[in-house]
Design a protein around this nucleic acid. Structure first.
Lengths: 297, 297
DNA sequence: ACTACTGATACCTTTCAGGTATCATCCTCG
DNA sequence: CGAGGATGATACCTGAAAGGTATCAGTAGT
C-alpha cells in the first residue's frame, strides 16, 4: 500500500464517482479504478459497493475514510513541523555561559532571541569554561560563551566583545584611592582567584601577567567565579577581572585599570560541522544583536 | 512522497546505517540511498547529516521520525479497524421491532448477539410496522422484525416464528369460560384495535377474518399496540392477537384460540442488496439462535 | 600507506502506474 | 420497450521510476 492508494481512495470516497475523482486527481478513470481494486485486493475487503448506478462506501470503507483523512492530515503536520525545525523555527538550543555574563548582556540577548524564535526552547546553563568545553564537545551544549584564550580546541569561535582586564579590590582598600595602578604595586597583596581547573588557560594568563610584572601572586583563597567578587569585597584579597564585571556595580568593590592590562576576548563558540538549525538561528541572532550590556541593577 | 519513502526513512533512521537498513528492507543499498535523497529533495531539507563515517539524524529528521512512526502506526490501526468492520466484528446495527416482541424473544436474542459481537453497537427501536417499512427503505433501519403479511415491498424476509392468532378478552368476561371460541361468537362484542395506519396489511387481515365470519367488527377504541392489552383488560372490548402475546402473562386478560384462526408470521426483514457486515452478522445470529421466548416475568 | 568500510554515482533491467480504446451494464427518456 | 448516454471494468500499450549490479570516493583504523 502506498500513499497514492490512500489519496485516490479519499478522492473517490468524497466524490462517490470514479470519473470526477479521476478528474480531480488529474489522471484518467481506468487507472483510478485499477488502483482502487488493487487497494481492495491488498486489504482483503471491499471499500465500495458498486451495485446500481451509484457507488457507495461500505461500512469498512467508511471507517477507513475517516481514519485515512486523519492519517493524511497528521502526515502533513509532521512534514510542516519538521520543516519548521529545519529552518530553526522550532527546536531547542542549549547555551552555556560564564557567571560574569549573567549581568552583562545575556538577558537582552535571550530576550531578542525569544522574540524572533518563540517556538525554540532555550536552555541556558551557567558553567565554568572547562565544563563548557566538555559540553560543547560531547553535544550537551549547542553554543557556549567563554573567555579566551582557547588552546586549540576543535571549536569555531567568534569574538563577541573585547575588553581589558582590571584590578578588583575592596572599596576601602588604600590602593583604591589611585585612579590607575600597576601590577607591581599589588605584588605583595593577597589574591583571590577561581580554581585553575575551571579555566586553565585564563588562569595561566593571569599568572603569566604577574610573572611578567616580576612576582608570583599569593593566592590565599579560591572561590567559584561568582563568589570571588564577594571575597574581594569582604577584604580577603584582590583579584583580576574583565572590565565588564563592573556592570554589576557593587559599591564595595573598586575596579581599577592597570598598566599593561591585556584585552581579553569573550568568545561565542560551537562545535565544528553541521549543527541544529536552531543553533544556527541562535548564532545569527547573536551576530546581529551582539552582547549589549543589560540595563539592569 | 509515498509510504515507501517513509518506511525507508524510518529504517535508516533506526539503523543509522544505509547498508543494514537496506538489508532489513530487503533491497540493495544504492536504491535506498536514492530514495532517501529523493525524499530529502521533495521535502526541501536534509534528514541526515552524513558528515564523518557515521550518519546521524538532523533536528528536522528527528522530528519527522517521531511523527512518522506515529503516522504509520495509526495507519495500521485504521486498516485493522476497517478490517474488523468488514467482517462485522465492529460497526452498528439498527433493529426495529414491534412492541409485542419486547417480552417474547428479543432480549435473549440481543444477549446472544452481544456475546458474540461485543464491539458492534446495537440500536433497537420499538416501531409499528408502517414506520419500520419506511426505516428499512430509507436505510434508517438495518433490519426489522415485523408481522406479515407484507404486500410486495422490496425487502428480503425470513420467517422467524409462525403462530396462530388468538382472541384476547377480559379475564372476567363471560366468554372467557370457554376453552375455544369462534369469531361468530364475538360478533356483537366491542373491539379494541390498533390504528390501521400502523400496520394496514395486518389490520386488513383481521377485518377480512371477521368478514368471513359474517360480521364487521365494532371498533370502539383504538390504541397503540402495547396499550391494546390494557384496554382489553379494563373491559373496553376484545381483540385479536398473535399467540406469543400470552407470554406477557397478564392475569387480567384471557387468550382463547378460535376456529379458523390463521397462522401469522413474524418476519425478519431487510433491504435487498449489500448491507453492512454488521447487519449480516446480526442476521446470521438470528438465524442460528432464533427467537426463543425469554424466560422473564 | 594501506585496507576495509561506508555512502554516492552510473547505468541497466524490470516493474507498474497511467494512458487509450473498448466493453458491459444500467438508467433514462421518448 | 428500444435507443442512447452515462458509468465503471477490462485489455493492452507506454513510459517513468524503483531496484539491481558494478564501481567510485572518502574516511577511519591499522
Amino acid at each position: 500500500m502506498e500513499l497514492r492508494h490512500l489519496r485516490y481512495f479519499v478522492a473517490v470516497a468524497e466524490e462517490l464517482h470514479f470519473g470526477r475523482a479521476a478528474e480531480r486527481l488529474g489522471i484518467a478513470q481506468p487507472p483510478l479504478s485499477r488502483q482502487i481494486q488493487d487497494l481492495e485486493g491488498e486489504l482483503g475487503f471491499k471499500l465500495f459497493d458498486r451495485t446500481r448506478r451509484r457507488i457507495e462506501l461500505t461500512a469498512a470503507g467508511d471507517v477507513l475514510l475517516k481514519r485515512t483523512r486523519d492519517v493524511l492530515e497528521r502526515l502533513e503536520d509532521a512534514v510542516r513541523d519538521a520543516r519548521s525545525t529545519s529552518t530553526g523555527k522550532r527546536g531547542r538550543v542549549t547555551v552555556g555561559y560564564p557567571s560574569s555574563l549573567a549581568y552583562t548582556g545575556l538577558v537582552g540577548l535571550l530576550r531578542a532571541f525569544r522574540t524572533e524564535f518563540p517556538d525554540v526552547e532555550l536552555a541556558v546553563r551557567e558553567l565554568p569554561l572547562a565544563e563548557q568545553l566538555v559540553g560543547l564537545t560531547n553535544g550537551e551544549l549547542d553554543v557556549g560563551f567563554l573567555r579566551g584564550p582557547l588552546d586549540g580546541e576543535a571549536l569555531v569561535t567568534e569574538c563577541m566583545r573585547r575588553e581589558p582586564l582590571m584590578l578588583a579590590l575592596p572599596a576601602d582598600h588604600p590602593l583604591a584611592r589611585h585612579k590607575r595602578l600597576t601590577l607591581a604595586a599589588v605584588a605583595r597583596e593577597p589574591f583571590v582567584f577561581f580554581p585553575r581547573v575551571r579555566a586553565p588557560a585564563f588562569f595561566d594568563l593571569l599568572l603569566s601577567l604577574c610573572q611578567k610584572a616580576g612576582f608570583t601572586p599569593q593566592i590565599r583563597h579560591e572561590a567559584p567565579q561568582a563568589d570571588v567578587l564577594s571575597l574581594v569585597a569582604a577584604g580577603f584579597g584582590i583579584s583580576i577581572m574583565p572590565a565588564s564585571v563592573r556592570e554589576i556595580r557593587r559599591t564595595d568593590v573598586a575596579f581599577r585599570p592597570f598598566a599593561g592590562a591585556p584585552l581579553t576576548e569573550l568568545l561565542l563558540a560551537w562545535r565544528v560541522g553541521e549543527g541544529s538549525p536552531s543553533r544556527q538561528a541562535f548564532i545569527d541572532v547573536v551576530r546581529r544583536v551582539g552582547l549589549r550590556l543589560d540595563s539592569v541593577l
